[in-house]
Structure formats: C-alpha cells, structure tokens
Simulated assay, not measured.
Amino acid sequence: MYTQEEYENNPLHGTSLEQLLTEMVEHYGWEILAAYLNLNCFKNNPSIKASVKFLKKTEWAQHKVESFYLYQYKNLPRADDAMYELPPRDRIVPLHQKPGDPKELSLEDAERLRLKKAKASRERDSRGKQRADGKSPYRQQREKPSGRRSKEDSPADFNPYANFKSKE
C-alpha cells in the first residue's frame, strides 16, 4: 500500500519533539506560538524543556504542535480526510510534496483566526442546542428519577431526609 519512502517523506520522521520545538521557537518566537496554538506552556514562563515535558505527557497538545509544524512551519498542503484522522507522525506525505518555507505569521492574523474560530464555535453551539420545538434544551424541565417522590406529589408526606435516616 504505502512504501517506506512515503513514510520517511513526513518531516516529523526522525525529528524529536525538542528539535521541532526549537526550530519553531527560533523562527517564530514564543509569542506567535502562544497566539496560534493557545497552550499555556507557551504563554506562562515558556521554556523548551518544560514545553517538551508537557507535550510528551499530553497527546492532544503534542498532535496540535506537530500539525502546526507540518502545515505552518513546513508549509505542506493539508492532508486528505483519511490521513488527517491519523496522528501527525503517522501521516503519509506523498513523494511529490516537499516542505516549503515557513508561512509568515503575525499576531494580528492570529487574533483574526481566533475570532473566526470563536464565531464558528458559537454558531455550531447555537445550531446544536435547539430542540425540534425551537426551545433551548437548558430550559427543559428535568425528569424526576424513578421511584422518588417530589413535594408536588404529596406535600404532607414529603421528607427529604427519609433515605438518610439511620436504622437503629
């Protein structure tokens, strides 16, 4: 299916997390990385050693940084859907795709991207949280757990501590 050569065409092949982070910090600096990746290890007292330690423990963050390395720093075309589902180190890079020069990034572009993502997230949330009748699911009355009585059922018999009485 895929050859060893196609696996080795991935710029992450044979590159340690420390190497790629060092390359990106030298080129972009911590401020740009923090703005684009939104990771606290890049924002608060950043260092290569501490960031590598965090990224090795946190798989999602490592994948985020490695994807940034591939598609921003190495400027590769976006992977197809099937490849994008794989972790960045397992992705196949076709032999005709060669890494390019790092993309030019700015704090202004990072802010525009952040606002665009926030807007898309709000729209996605508002579409997903509507019921068929158009009301928000957060306003739905919660169902009573089965077998329990509420004050409305029989106010005279209601004892909220009934289940907690000690058996003497």
Rank of each mutant, 00 (worst) to 15 (best):
G29A: 05
E31C: 02
I32W: 11
L33M: 12
L33V: 07
L33R: 07
A34R: 08
A35K: 12
L37R: 12
L37K: 11
L37I: 14
C41R: 10
K43T: 15
K43I: 13
K43S: 14
N44E: 06
N44Q: 08
N45T: 11
S47E: 01
K49S: 13
S51W: 02
V52A: 01
K53I: 00
F54V: 13
L55W: 05
K56Y: 05
K56H: 10
K56C: 05
K56P: 01
K57G: 13
T58P: 00
T58Q: 07
E59G: 09
E59R: 14
W60T: 12
A61Q: 11
K64V: 04
V65Q: 00
E66D: 01
E66R: 03
F68I: 06
F68Q: 03
Y69H: 03
Y69I: 02
N75W: 03
N75L: 02
N75Q: 01
R78N: 03
A79H: 10
D80A: 07
D80P: 06
D81L: 11
D81W: 06
A82Y: 13
M83I: 10
Y84E: 14
Y84D: 14
Y84A: 15
P87K: 14
P87L: 06
P87M: 10
P88A: 04
R89Q: 07
R89E: 06
D90G: 07
D90W: 14
D90A: 15
R91W: 14
R91H: 12
I92Y: 02
V93R: 02
V93W: 05
P94S: 03
P94T: 05
L95A: 11
K98L: 12
P99H: 10
P99F: 09
G100Y: 11
D101R: 14
E104S: 09
E104C: 01
S106A: 06
E108Y: 05
D109W: 07
E111V: 11
R112T: 11
L113Q: 13
L115M: 13
K116F: 08
K116G: 05
K117M: 04
K117E: 09
K119N: 07
A120P: 00
S121T: 03
R122S: 05
R124Y: 02
D125L: 10
D125Q: 08
D125M: 07
R127K: 13
R127I: 05
K129F: 04
K129L: 06
D133N: 12
D133M: 00
Q141H: 00
